[in-house]
């Protein structure tokens, strides 16, 4: 499945996906916080109905 993860999610997320849970969550946290610190907005739009 690793090559599927690379194809679907990219190299970095694929690497993170195969880390042990604790390290995976730390890596996800770093990635999300880094994006947010650069101004990326990750709040979902207010739609009223969640897809």
């Amino acid at each position: 499945m690793r090559d599927f993860h690379v194809r679907a999610f990219g190299e970095e997320l694929a690497r993170i996906n195969f880390l042990p849970e604790k390290r995976r969550k730390q890596a996800v946290a770093e990635m999300i916080d880094h994006a947010r610190s650069k101004g990326v907005k990750l709040t979902r739009p207010a739609l009223g109905v969640t897809p």
């Binding site: 999610f9 997320l13 993170i16 890596a27 996800v28 990750l42 709040t43």
Partner: peptide
């Protein structure tokens, strides 16, 4: 998904 090993860049919760 993050818990199960498929990382998602989301900060909100369902």
């Amino acid at each position: 998904c993050v818990h199960f090993g498929v990382a998602a860049t989301t900060k909100d919760c369902d």
